[in-house]
């Protein structure tokens, strides 16, 4: 079956050699500030986005697509900005927690409504909610700064005031730790009973109900996780960029997340990060030449993946790897 949204079975352990490759990848990322300092910020953005993409990926595992998950990315970022503005000298971990909790809370409120729907309604209602929040950000400019957004002052780190370079370095490694930690958590969650119950929404809700489980509650558990992941990504992005704008919530952002999730390999956590890194590199270097047609390229590429390579990059990657192993 050529479905973009594939539920991997609970036993999805990749071969040992492949795991080594992933560890090497993380080590390589950790070395970026020394090997290629000019890429540090770019990778930082990619990691922040990657976390949000994992949020979208979680939902793909239940066969659902949200066109509005930038909402949670943006809510968290704006909470960070508001807290920084009202409590000067706030600690980074303070806004990380506040932003993530805020995104999760928003996920609960929106989730209680949207988990009643699947497919078209689910995707479009999420889009509608993100558009509502975007309008609020634009219209109530005396609070939100309108299209200009809000600048974030640099937070302290465990009470210490860091210089710009030190803070960026701190942020970079924090992002790596969060990516590895939350990525690991999400993979474990997928394989756990709660995660498996959530993923059954994709194939049979009738049976789920007849197992004594409320499909809506199962859906909500995944929705909360996805919102929280977007929230962590949003805070990382806001602190790395130093400014939040309504663009954080704009549908194009949501579309980008869906695009990367499908590009990386729908349903794959590692694929989400791999996709985010590739995406961010290509965007940074190609959009200078193709800025006007960037979205068009994304759309066209999305069509190509859906129609011809439904496994995404990770699918190609693992297939090539498996083939290489078979022949050697």
């Amino acid at each position: 079956m050529s479905s973009v949204t594939t539920t991997a079975p609970a036993t999805g352990s990749s071969p040992a050699a492949l795991s080594l490759l992933w560890i090497a990848g993380v080590v390589l990322l950790a070395a970026v500030p020394f090997l290629a300092p000019n890429l540090q910020l770019l990778v930082n953005f990619a990691l922040a986005k990657g976390l949000a993409v994992v949020g979208v990926t979680v939902l793909l595992r239940a066969g659902q697509v949200s066109f509005g998950h930038a909402l949670f990315f943006g809510i968290s970022a704006y909470i960070g900005a508001f807290v920084m503005a009202s409590v000067p000298g706030m600690d980074f971990f303070g806004i990380l927690i506040a932003g993530t909790l805020g995104a999760a809370l928003a996920g609960l409120v929106v989730g209680l409504f949207v988990v009643r729907y699947r497919g078209i309604f689910f995707g479009m209602l999420n889009l509608a909610f993100s558009m509502i929040f975007w309008s609020i950000l634009e219209k109530f400019y005396h609070i939100t700064g309108g299209a200009d957004g809000i600048r974030l002052t640099r937070p302290t780190v465990l009470g210490m005031e860091l210089g710009r370079d030190a803070f960026e370095l701190f942020l970079y490694y924090t992002a790596i730790v969060l990516v590895v930690g939350l990525g690991w958590f999400t993979i474990r969650w997928f394989a756990s009973p709660v995660g498996q119950l959530f993923q059954t929404i994709k194939t049979n809700e009738t049976r789920l109900e007849y197992l004594g489980i409320s499909p809506r509650r199962a859906m909500l558990s995944g929705y909360l996780l996805s919102a929280a992941l977007c929230g962590v990504g949003g805070i990382l992005m806001a602190t790395a960029q130093g400014v939040v704008t309504p663009e954080y919530v704009w549908w194009v952002r949501s579309a980008e997340m869906v695009f990367i999730a499908v590009l990386g390999g729908a349903g794959s956590v590692r694929g989400a990060f791999l996709g985010a890194l590739i995406y961010e590199f290509v965007r940074t270097y190609a959009s200078a030449y193709a800025g006007d047609v960037w979205q068009m390229l994304l759309g066209a590429f999305l069509l190509v993946i859906i129609l011809f390579a439904p496994g995404g990059i990770i699918g190609i990657f693992e297939r090539v790897f498996a083939r290489g192993k078979g022949t050697s």
């Binding site: 973009v4 949204t5 697509v65 995707g123 869906v258 960037w294 068009m296 759309g299 999305l302 069509l303």
Partner: peptide
């Protein structure tokens, strides 16, 4: 090509067309 595919895929395809057409307008 996609009438027999899952609803999510159909949604993604029309969404991709949407992204393309938005840029076409700008161009």
């Amino acid at each position: 090509r996609i009438y027999d595919k899952p609803e999510v895929l159909q949604l993604l395809v029309t969404f991709a067309v949407f992204m393309i057409l938005e840029d076409v307008q700008r161009l």
